[in-house]
Design a protein around this nucleic acid. Structure first.
Lengths: 265, 265
DNA sequence: TCGATCGTATCGAAATACGATACGAAACGG
DNA sequence: CCGTTTCGTATCGTATTTCGATACGATCGA
């Protein structure tokens, strides 16, 4: 099995039952994802080369998605961008996911107490996905959006969840993760990661110092389901210009633990 | 032409070019939307009856969506719910939409000043869709989510945007809207709506008192594009238990106007 | 002015999706 | 306790639907 990349892109192409898979649907989602990945409007030709499809096939996929509202023409009229109808699915997902409904009031209270950025992330195989974000400062825009996906191994939330798994499961996840750093401080060697997991097992929460963003310190505690398996994490993030790591831990570790415990079953 | 319902569902089925439309893709999205609309996990049979499709066709659509991560099995194992991969598309949309990036820091500042709930909504034909939501209190959960869609005619943001359109365009939108109230205070008669639009043209911002939620007062100012056409609105929402309408207008009208002006081109 | 690329449009061939059918398991009700 | 329903899963021949080559006018840049 090839390694999944840390954003889970490989899981995307790994279809389930080939007998029951609608190929034109898979291709159409590849088009939608390619446009979203681009970062700027993409033309039919560009999309075709991104997803290795015939231009005609892309034309049909784009026309269909555009008709449904999941793609739109770019402002200037050239190229295509994700469409507003996507937010309707976002609404459905947020509304129907119990942990998000339960966590919302808890995180609002937590943010009032902590007065720092507070997030809820969801475990999704080798990555975490942010589902609730309560920011308080102007920050790096893409980094603070709902839906941001990061590898479990260098995020505090991911490590808090790894800490609750048995070693075989941890090995499996780390084995399928692409251990690539994104800052100079990212810990991405296996012994280092295992050390951070051991630390999280000791403290009950996990810590990451400048591992995803320079100048930022984050800690997180895991939320479990009825079987004790981790499903989400409560994050608290602050700036190193305002906190020492020791002070940050002492102040927010207990708060994150308490919130995560209240959300667990 | 049949009336679009106020949530824009009719626009969903109105395909573009039938020659270029992938029917299996349209059907699959109908399945995805049916599951999202449900509010609780749905079985294959239920979905089939919701979208008038053969059970086999639903089976294939669900298997495909599940393989891609846009649908998941419900917790107990019975039925299907929207999947985490939806949030990846959310991320793409939020990141690639310029007005959202521009508005984020402005709304954060506005919220600090106003200390009340602040939202950004996007115009989408006969409805508005919330794209940024900065809440401060525990509130009615579904009503405060990203992606919530409401008719333009009874929302303050919708009326603020209607106020910037010429009368023909206003008539067109109202004509295609389903004028149905959702609270006892919702103004849904044409003369009443036109009166509120005239009021918005006079004040520069629009007001809605308990029209979407009892006990809540909201005002909003429109954001325009380079041509002066409305594309979004800045909302400020508060509780009638803390504010009189007059005080609320005096305090927040200028703030919303200023923020919207800063975001317009 | 020329060449490349944009989005759009057409059409015959065959690959792909359709939908009827069937199965074991689990949940339900008498 | 057993009959009944509904769950998700699986199979397969048919023909509907998608494929992909091709072409067109418009627009943009060199």
């Amino acid at each position: 099995m090839p390694k999944a990349d840390s954003t889970g892109a490989a899981a995307r192409v790994a279809a389930v039952d080939p007998r029951l898979t609608l190929q034109s649907v898979v291709r159409t989602f590849q088009v939608l994802e390619a446009v979203g990945r681009a970062g700027r409007p993409r033309s039919l030709g560009e999309i075709a080369s991104m997803v290795s499809m015939d231009k005609s096939a892309v034309q049909r996929a784009v026309a269909t998605l555009q008709g449904l509202g999941y793609l739109e023409r770019a402002e200037n009229g050239n190229g295509f961008v994700p469409g507003r109808r996507i937010l309707d699915r976002t609404y459905d997902y947020l509304r129907m996911t119990p942990i998000i409904e339960r966590a919302t009031p808890v995180l609002i209270e937590l943010r009032k107490t902590a007065r720092e950025r507070v997030d809820l992330s969801l475990l999704d195989d080798v990555s975490i996905v942010y589902a609730i974000r309560l920011q308080s400062k102007r920050e790096n825009f893409p980094a603070t959006l709902i839906g941001r996906r990061l590898p479990v191994f260098f995020t505090s939330g991911g490590r808090a969840m790894l800490a609750l798994m048995d070693d075989a499961k941890v090995d499996d996840i780390l084995d399928r993760s692409e251990l690539r750093p994104i800052t100079q401080k990212t810990i991405f060697d296996l012994p280092g990661i295992r050390g951070k997991i051991a630390e999280a097992r000791r403290d009950g929460y996990a810590l990451a110092v400048e591992e995803s963003l320079i100048g930022e310190v984050v800690l997180a505690a895991a939320v479990t389901d009825a079987d004790g398996a981790p499903i989400a994490a409560v994050h608290i993030a602050a700036s190193l210009s305002e906190w020492t790591v020791a002070d940050f831990r002492a102040r927010f570790g207990p708060l994150a633990l308490e919130a995560a415990k209240a959300l667990s079953r």
